[in-house]
Design a protein around this nucleic acid. Structure first.
Lengths: 256, 256
DNA sequence: CAAAAACGTTGATGTTGATCAATTCGCAGG
DNA sequence: CCTGCGAATTGATCAACATCAACGTTTTTG
């Protein structure tokens, strides 16, 4: 029951140790310390247990896809551990990354409108997700007002997030985009109890570039420049933020 | 009751005549011939009347704002007639247009996540909207499953729309963006029973540029070029699509 | 462990679209 | 009707980023 039909539950050591009580295969929203980020915000114990009943989970190894563009839409997913990217294949066959998602974030809502997913979701490290079958979630959210409200907020947050990215893509220059990207990652790491000032990038320069509308060389050059200016430390995928205010200053500074 | 407190209901002749039974101030979803685009999709008569009960309407003259960034979020809006833009003021004080909306489209959902709007919505011509108070809509959608489903689909559609724009901004070149923009407008006009091949732009070159991440001069040059190539006719804001396939060819052609 | 593949950095050059600037067009108000 | 102002067009120049290319480093795989 707990194992999704697509899930090959190979037992892997998760590379990222996450402060989560992983009591062996069984996951309850009521026990999850991500619940303040997730759909469970504001539910009382009774309602939490109803939510528990419809959630199962699935592990993915690095590189595995959670869903693909064109797949029938069946569920939305809450990331428990790990790191994902979502991307779309454009007409011309180029992939464009539309987002990077981490623990506590919900993905898959793009599929609601057509009953099919429009993007791919790929694990960038060994990961684990909660599967929330959509029709059951809809039913439950008709009977639990605070679940309904939280679900709507999460969808709206996705709309607002996408709009921020539109602004970034439409009006920022390369270095501003990259500074914004690093600060955003830093802040999201911090919210999850990790260091805001040092972390490992899970994605390649090319994926960052695709996300930010830049070429990988431009990303690499910006990293090197920030490094030379003492704003960040860069060793491959290991990043240290040395001067967050300096990065922020790049954003406000309107040189055009 | 029908008149929103902010609405100064000056009686204006709507410039756009729309095939709608405007029986004087009172609007029923059950009578509206936009209902197939709107929230009312799939509701039976009984449910339609419940929706009618919570909807009021408001007229706006060209240039008036429906809501502003920072306003408390109270309702979402269905456009009955007219044309809107939504935009955000960036940190540096530049406006960036995030969308153009026409009859049958729903706006304001950005406000759900924080209980405040994050963008401005401005009428680009004399317009009329249906006001749907959000808390009442939430309540009603808990009791009407098909209303709930339709609402979720509309939010999801907004997410998908934003992602298409991200792809446009992240991976297309100037002329591709403008071709895509014209084809998109054309198709939406067509869906609403207008000509797909000729229409008036309601926005300036600068607003188009802002939306597409380009400068107004670039927009103007692309229009002129398309004109010279016989793809479109341009006389100020009056546009004719002369060779839609030619425009589409610009999109698939991957010169990079 | 060795070889290959993927990833990343850096330099030289080219193209796209931004910027600066001049002019025209169209419309609203005195 | 003229005036003034916002909008649009067009040209000349420039800067930012892409492209092409070479090389170094890390990771994967047989």
């Amino acid at each position: 029951m707990l194992i999704n039909s697509q899930g090959k539950l190979s037992h892997v050591d998760l590379k990222v140790t996450f402060p989560l009580t992983t009591n062996n295969m069984r996951v309850a929203c009521s026990q999850c310390n991500l619940r303040e980020l997730c759909l469970a915000v504001g539910l009382d114990d009774d309602d939490l247990h109803k939510l528990d009943d419809l959630v199962t989970k699935r592990k993915l190894k690095r590189g595995q896809q959670l869903y693909r563009a064109g797949d029938a839409f069946e569920a939305i997913y809450a990331i428990r551990t790990g790191f994902f990217k979502t991307d779309i294949l454009t007409e011309e066959g180029l992939e464009q990354v539309t987002g990077f998602q981490m623990a506590g974030e919900i993905i898959g809502m793009d599929g609601i409108s057509n009953e099919h997913h429009v993007c791919n979701a790929t694990a960038l490290e060994d990961s684990e997700v909660c599967i929330m079958p959509y029709d059951q979630l809809e039913d439950l959210s008709r009977s639990i007002k605070s679940l309904q409200q939280q679900f709507h907020k999460i969808m709206s947050r996705e709309i607002v997030r996408d709009q921020s990215l539109m602004i970034l893509l439409g009006s920022m220059r390369a270095e501003e985009r990259i500074a914004a990207f690093l600060l955003n990652l830093s802040q999201r790491m911090h919210m999850r109890g990790y260091s805001a000032s040092e972390f490992h990038l899970r994605m390649t320069r090319e994926e960052i570039g695709s996300y930010l509308g830049l070429k990988l060389e431009t990303v690499s050059r910006a990293f090197s420049k920030f490094h030379d200016e003492g704003l960040i430390g860069v060793q491959q995928k290991y990043i240290r933020i040395l001067n967050a205010d300096g990065l922020r200053a790049l954003l406000n500074h309107t040189p055009s």
